[in-house]
Simulated assay, not measured.
Amino acid sequence: PSILFFLLIFLLNNCVFLQTLVFYFPPFLGALADPITQQANFPSALAPGTDSTITFPEEHEDPRVSTATGGLWGFIKGVAENPMVKSVLDKTKHSVETMITTLDPGMVPYIKTGGELDIVVTSNKEVKVAAIRDAFQEVFGMAVVTGEAAQSNIAPQPVGYAAGLKGAQERIDSLRRAGVIHEKQPAVSAESFIEELLPDKWFDIGCLIIEDPIHGIHLEAFTQATPVPLQYVQQAKSLTPEDYSLRWSGLLVTVGEVLEKSIQNVNRTDWHVVFTGMSRRQMIYSAAKALAGMYKQQLPPRTV
């Protein structure tokens, strides 16, 4: 099916290109032949028996046609660089992509994967990778976004902003130390944590950071805060031994694990939708889009 989609793009683009030549650029088609000088002999009405040579004026080249590059290739190149042709082809490409992604939404990552931006996400979980990929491709148009599994040396359930930031940063550092990614590779990392923002009112928050050593960029963004009922936080605390070695950074049992055991049909990795109606992927996407927007603003302007 993918081959058929790309074949459809090729055929439609070529059809529009040919139609543009015929309807918008007829002078170009007539300019392909070399100018000629024609001569014809007609009997003279003034002097019978003598011939008069009539020479037709030489046809001048159309000034709209560039002669820098000869032949058919030069003609096609000149037409393709015309702003009107580019506009028609861009609109056609956008229309075809819209049709394809409407019929098969799964084609979106393939169409928008590419370009100069290459980002590695410090996770191989689709909920994180897909959300961050969609966000960066939305902001930059095209981007290569892949995921690599990474570990952090903090508790499974981080508690507090500092623990969340540390966990996200350690995931990037661990991939660099292991040589999985280059030391200059731009990377995005996400880490969820809980925080008591109000007395006895706990919230789950996601921390996202991007690190680009080449341009010296380091940015943070946070997802919206999702309320977590107090009893589930207390259960997670009770299941964490006091002498737990990573107690300084959080809890041994995650809130998601407690919710999965306590509430029917709740998944430990995406329980947010039960309490807010918004999935974790949507929350990560929103924060990642803001992160991508800030990152784009801080990148140096491209030189053509």
Rank of each mutant, 00 (worst) to 15 (best):
R280G: 12
E260T: 02
T240I: 04
K93N: 11
F42M: 09
T240E: 09
A162F: 09
P43W: 11
W73N: 09
V79K: 01
V159F: 08
D200E: 14
S249M: 05
P156H: 07
E58P: 01
P105I: 00
L29R: 04
V255T: 14
P300T: 07
P35I: 01
L259R: 09
D104T: 07
F56Q: 11
Q297F: 05
S44W: 07
F5T: 00
R171E: 08
G256V: 10
A168I: 09
F28Q: 07
S192G: 15
Y295P: 06
F222E: 12
G106A: 15
S44D: 15
V65L: 15
L4Q: 04
I76T: 06
S174W: 07
R171I: 11
N153T: 03
L208M: 10
G206Y: 07
E170C: 05
G250K: 09
I132W: 12
T101P: 05
A143I: 03
A155P: 01
G78R: 04
K112M: 01
P43Y: 10
V255K: 04
N153Y: 10
A288Q: 13
V22R: 04
E97S: 03
Q137Y: 04
Q169K: 13
V273I: 15
S52E: 13
A221K: 13
E220L: 09
I54S: 03
A150M: 04
G164W: 04
N14W: 00
Q151K: 15
L299V: 11
Q169F: 04
T20K: 00
I209S: 13
L251A: 06
D118N: 11
V159S: 06
A149D: 07
L89H: 02
A236H: 10
G256H: 04
Q137R: 14
M278S: 13
L197P: 00
A163I: 02
A162R: 12
N13Y: 00
D200K: 14
D134G: 08
D204V: 00
I205V: 15
Q137G: 05
Q297V: 13
I181E: 08
G164Q: 06
